[in-house]
Nucleic acid binder design. Structure first.
Lengths: 252, 252
DNA sequence: CGCCCGCTTGAGATAAATCAAACACGGTGG
DNA sequence: CCACCGTGTTTGATTTATCTCAAGCGGGCG
């Protein structure tokens, strides 16, 4: 419309995945899922009250948008493999990324008209549940209800903590916080090995999540590398000094 | 502990309201509540499916902290009158305010250990519901379930939109957004008259919500006053040019 | 080979912070 | 009644973190 929308148009291919990928060769991949025990799926599929499991439908997606913005969906998604992120664009093409999602994360839309959509960062595999079934399960089974509420509160808290960082933290602190929180979540899912893990974010994603420019992200990350705090090299994050990283985030 | 905690200690009186105020002279104030029809209370108390209403207990509070941070509560609160805000302090005494609450807003805690608490901005009256009863109601009654989920999604979306503003907006835009969103919420509850309403925030609250200094908030607000966008005078907000205010927030 | 993308580095510009002073106002005590 | 104080706000001068503009570099890929 106006403003420099250059950065906007070509970047998001609004390819909603109406084209279905062939169902996974594995008819019930959840049986071997690495993160089932440490994610919400535990409550949905297995666990101590092994009632009938919800209808599942697995799909894969390349690096495209998964949802159109502001659409209500009949399904609730759980990421099985790969990374995705939520984002929103302003009129002038700038992008904000509130959070990143990976294996075990539940995807549930924001309000309509808020403009948030979801994009695959890597190729991903995800599992679809029928929303109505989940709703019924939540109402029938206290354990599911509790897990659902706990997950929703945790998600909301994460957002508030993120907002607090954006309001008060310096560039270095914001980036440190983003890295640390991803590290902790990856660790909780058993995806961290020897303080190192796959990390597909480009500097532009870090910039859009922290409200900084890529130029400044570059400078700040190399400062962290030089200071021996962490390194991000070719899709891999390695924490060199976890204690120091925590100290930076906790402002001590 | 360290750092200049001067601003921290004396400001928050961590007076949890264990001292109960005498019950309101009005035995069932909800009957005459101004915001009942336009808030979540509609679902809790009245409405088309007039099942038994939840146990209510009304209290009032002066300008103190209502909740200790990180405590789980047996109750869910709804504000009946007056203003409150959530906040969190960092080690060095700086305060972040994610949102403001007024008549009709539901108060439900963040995760433990996230450090958020709630403080009354004015004298307030609030209504307490037993959490277990609400939980039962949510499970029994589809209407309550839907309203609850919708409210939770809306709250989460608000936080994401706030975070986006902190990440990408200028000082003027952030303040304009805060004012506009409060205006719209007040309007939805019928608390706005002739584009004017009570507005008990001090500049320091606006500063702590937008991540700016009070000095800069002062400058920015007087610029808005001079530009004929809005004024904040002695506890009263008046929108002078709503269209212009919206344009600023929508970056057009 | 050459091009594009992501990253790095440098130099100058700018929005907001910081430091500092003063003012307006209501309350309080002499 | 006035002097004084504290809180909240305003305004000015200077500093700083981050942005903007610009150029260069390396690697993957058509």
């Amino acid at each position: 419309m106006h403003g420099n929308a250059t950065r906007c148009e070509e970047d998001d291919k609004l390819v909603t995945l109406t084209h279905k990928f062939p169902p996974s060769e594995n008819p019930s991949p959840c049986k071997t899922c690495r993160v089932r025990a440490t994610s919400f799926c535990d409550v949905l599929i297995g666990g101590p009250a092994p009632s009938r499991s919800l209808t599942q439908h697995h799909e894969t997606a390349a690096r495209h948008d998964l949802f159109e913005p502001d659409k209500t969906h009949e399904s609730v998604y759980v990421i099985c493999d790969g990374w995705a992120f939520r984002f929103r664009r302003t009129e002038d093409g700038r992008r904000y990324i509130p959070n990143f999602l990976f294996a075990g994360d539940v995807v549930y839309g924001f309000s309509k008209n808020a403009g948030f959509s979801l994009q695959a960062l890597t190729d991903i595999r995800y599992c679809k549940f029928v929303r109505a079934e989940l709703k019924a399960r939540i109402r029938e089974e206290p354990r599911t209800y509790d897990a659902w509420i706990a997950a929703r509160i945790a998600e909301r808290t994460e957002l508030a903590v993120t907002a607090a960082a954006l309001a008060q933290f310096s560039a270095a602190e914001r980036i440190a916080q983003l890295v640390l929180r991803l590290r902790d979540r990856l660790d909780a899912r058993g995806m961290l090995h020897n303080e190192s893990c796959a990390f597909p974010l480009r500097q532009v994603h870090i910039a859009d999540a922290t409200g900084l420019t890529t130029v400044h992200v570059s400078r700040t990350i190399s400062a962290f590398r030089k200071a021996g705090v962490f390194t991000i090299d070719d899709g891999k994050l390695t924490i060199l000094n976890l204690a120091k990283l925590r100290r930076i985030v906790e402002r001590e």
